[in-house]
């Protein structure tokens, strides 16, 4: 059929630039570039290798979670327990190794298994009860937060893990989760590589695989997807587990980077992830968004977070900035959605 080969004459030729402008993540990319230029010009240290490694590190741990949360949000759900999960997984490893002398690799795997279980329970509760994930994960959030503080205090008598470095074989997971790679003057944390890898894999899954198609579908119209045979429940449960799994990854990155973890780690970060995902182009209502966009959203957060410090401003301005970004992004996304849905 010749018509399939040639471009349709009714479509005006669209330049690659214009085509790119229609992607959901483009707003976040432009904002990230603007913020980089702003702080690079107004401060001395921001654009230096030392400065860059600092804000890249901040962005990376936030970014991994933001990407996971973005996939979940495209699938139509929220996970408020994502933040506290990063503390919980680190604490599990810390307590099991320093207090009970468990092999560090076994502890790391136990921690992963627990995280996946929590993700599974989150997903199962949401699917089976039909309750909003906002409420269900708010519940697991508080349960985990309580366990983190009370459990840690009961088991080790304090609220922070100490003596991680003395644990046998500490070097091995440290090399994977907490090392630093020097490229010239740039001291690149390994977490940055994890961030890039997670963003790349998530984007590939979302845009190129069957599961990605299902993620868009279950978030966009769950009933319709069910009718054509999409496994709605499994897709959503898988997303919750993936988010929890990323929580574990970030937990490990934080633990082996600093060799300690506080009982309160990760609390209140969950909203940052959601903000990054929305700034990256995700619709709050699901069915539309981008994984790489969430990574850009996290980059914006990391740069603003550090740039405000370098500029010598009150760091509380960060909050105001984030709020404003969120509002702009939501308005922009709504406009994009209306345009996409409107009948011609």
């Amino acid at each position: 059929m010749t018509a399939t080969a040639v471009a349709d004459e009714r479509l005006a030729r669209v330049s690659p630039v214009n085509r790119a402008l229609k992607r959901p993540e483009v707003g976040a990319l432009i904002a990230a570039l603007a913020i980089f230029v702003f702080f690079a010009v107004t401060t001395d240290t921001f654009a230096t290798p030392a400065g860059a490694s600092t804000w890249l590190q901040t962005s990376s741990t936030i970014g991994i979670m933001a990407v996971a949360v973005a996939l979940l949000m495209i699938g139509g759900e929220f996970d408020l327990s994502a933040g506290v999960m990063t503390g919980f997984t680190g604490l599990v490893v810390g307590v099991l190794t320093t207090q009970y002398g468990l092999n560090i690799w076994v502890a790391v795997l136990v921690s992963l298994a627990l995280a996946l279980c929590v993700g599974f329970v989150n997903g199962l509760l949401v699917i089976k009860t039909g309750l909003p994930s906002f409420i269900v994960t708010l519940g697991t959030f508080f349960v985990l937060q309580g366990i983190d503080v009370a459990g840690t205090k009961t088991l080790i008598g304090q609220v922070a893990i100490q003596g991680m470095k003395k644990v046998p074989y500490y070097d091995q997971p440290h090399a994977i989760f907490g090392s630093t790679i020097s490229i010239g003057d740039l001291a690149l944390r390994v977490s940055v590589l994890w961030w890039i890898a997670v963003a790349a894999v998530a984007t590939w899954i979302l845009l190129r695989t069957r599961v990605g198609n299902w993620i868009f579908a279950v978030g966009g119209a769950a009933h319709s997807s069910r009718q054509v045979g999409v496994p709605v429940g499994n897709t959503k449960i898988g997303l919750f587990m993936a988010t929890a799994g990323c929580g574990w990854l970030v937990g490990m990155l934080l633990l082996f980077n600093t060799s300690t973890v506080q009982a309160g780690t990760g609390v209140s970060q969950e909203f940052i992830y959601i903000i990054c995902a929305v700034v990256g182009g995700c619709l709050m209502t699901g069915g539309y968004g981008s994984a790489i966009g969430a990574a850009f959203g996290a980059l914006i957060y990391g740069m603003a977070n550090q740039g405000i410090v370098y500029a010598g401003w009150d760091s509380n301005w960060l909050k105001a900035f984030l709020g404003a970004m969120l509002l702009i992004a939501v308005l922009l996304n709504e406009w994009v959605r209306k345009r996409a849905e409107e009948t011609r």
Binding site: T209, R210, N213, W214, F216, A217, G220, A221, H223, S224, S225, Q227, V228, G229, V230, G287, Y288, R337, A340, E341
Partner: peptide
């Protein structure tokens, strides 16, 4: 109700649930 997802492209909808890989 046609079982389509409005925000997804036509081709993704066409094969939804039966995507060739």
């Amino acid at each position: 109700d046609l079982a389509v997802v409005p925000l997804m492209p036509v081709w993704r909808n066409f094969f939804l649930g039966s995507e060739p890989v």
